[in-house]
Design a protein around this nucleic acid. Structure first.
Lengths: 242, 242
DNA sequence: CGACTCCTTGAACACTATCAAGACAGGTGG
DNA sequence: CCACCTGTCTTGATAGTGTTCAAGGAGTCG
């Protein structure tokens, strides 16, 4: 089911790079020269996934780096007895597998149908050496991600169930804003179980907590897996415990 | 009490850089040319801290990047009501404040007396632009750190108290090995409260759990804040749940 | 419309937190 | 050198938040 198109040939014009991947929209390309963008375009191919399909497996050789174009992806790690920890969700524009390790440190699956750009690691790394700006930008992205991971560590280590769920919706909303989408009807494509494994809770507790937030009129449920933040201030207060 | 020596002048010989910071030992310097090491040395100064002293505060302008030379440091974030989450511990060779954000995302305090190398961020960033190898190495370090953070997320999200404590000691031991120290008598300079805030538990639970591990003869306590791993296999099994 | 998965709700339980107090250092000063 | 003092650590009893087990309801897709 995983459809990989042939490598997209570098186009002659700066104006029309990879259609599927829309590489010029990627934040990393901001300050690149036309020929640099062309070289980046030359090494990528496009991958399409159905909902639920795996992309990478923990421990597998990290031969590719990806950027997500459309859809949502979950990253997770498993314990031996099957306990799952969702370490993050990816949205369009996010990177997957950028690391200096030779195996992936987590597994990734598509939550919704998804489209990705695939870069062979060796070729990308060769390019990084020639275009330091590119590595600088990837590093900047990694720094942001590390900030988010630290927030998540605080959430998992010290927040209550209600605070976790509130933080979660607040975070989803903030990420929509970063993608120039409206802050408020928050799209929640992942299941309660995904959310639970992300927040260190059980499905039941997530469900109960959402009900509570609903009853307090902090949020409301809208059709199409969306939730609306009804009282942003109160939700923020609950999320941050500030 | 924070003693900052004047900037160490670049030495003429490759053989004698900053005495306090021993910069050539830093992993980042591995593939640098002599003149590059000299330029790095030229911008650093040395900082000494007493036990308990703060180094950086969350939210503060991130004007400096540090590397730890001697001692142990705790990184933490606070919630509004005082709940604390220790996001990590630093040991000699580790970096502090490497990020592309303009404020620190966490606070840092010395656990033991400590010595650090201080790099002014602006100067370091200028140097990074000129020496891409350096940025590459910092990025590689950041990647390792991200792996550790993901492990910590699994720990906080899905492991039991016993598994957390076992993982903690296992981790401390592994970090000693990375620093070319013996794996086994594990030095534990941090308090039970530090450990608790790091593992998402309370002091009491950490204490009780350590007692249990001791009673099961998985570990034993040695004088001088050291613990000895008596049964590495069983401890690993418990830690990883593998 | 039926089968599936996902979600919600209920009741009992368990793990860890909380509250409380005593034990054990480690450092200081007499 | 010893007694004291303070902070840290350990241990006990109780309570609470979230889990577990169980079942019914809602939404979705053939």
């Amino acid at each position: 089911m995983q459809r990989i198109s042939g490598e997209i040939s570098a186009t002659d014009t700066f104006a029309s790079p990879c259609d599927d991947c829309n590489i010029r929209d990627l934040a990393i390309c901001g300050a690149l020269r036309a020929d640099e963008v062309r070289r980046l375009t030359a090494i990528l191919s496009s991958v399409e996934l159905a909902a639920g399909e795996p992309i990478v497996d923990e421990g597998e050789a990290s031969d590719f780096v990806y950027t997500l174009t459309t859809g949502t992806i979950r990253l997770y790690k498993l314990l031996a007895d099957g306990r799952r920890s969702v370490t993050g969700f990816l949205f369009p524009g996010d990177f997957l597998g950028v690391s200096h390790r030779d195996t992936y440190g987590f597994s990734a699956e598509a939550i919704t149908p998804a489209t990705l750009c695939q870069f062979p690691r060796t070729k990308l790394e060769a390019l990084l050496k020639e275009i330091p700006t590119l590595e600088h930008r990837l590093f900047a992205r990694a720094s942001e991600e590390m900030s988010l991971m630290q927030e998540q560590i605080v959430l998992l280590g010290r927040k209550t169930a209600a605070e976790r769920v509130a933080s979660f919706f607040r975070g989803l909303s903030a990420r929509q804003v970063k993608r120039y989408l409206p802050a408020n009807p928050v799209s929640v494509p992942m299941t309660r179980t995904d959310i639970a494994d992300y927040l260190g809770l059980t499905t039941e507790t997530v469900s109960r907590t959402i009900t509570q937030l609903k009853n307090k009129n902090l949020i409301s449920i809208e059709p199409g897996s969306r939730i609306r933040i009804e009282d942003e201030d109160l939700l923020d207060e609950l999320a941050e415990a500030l």
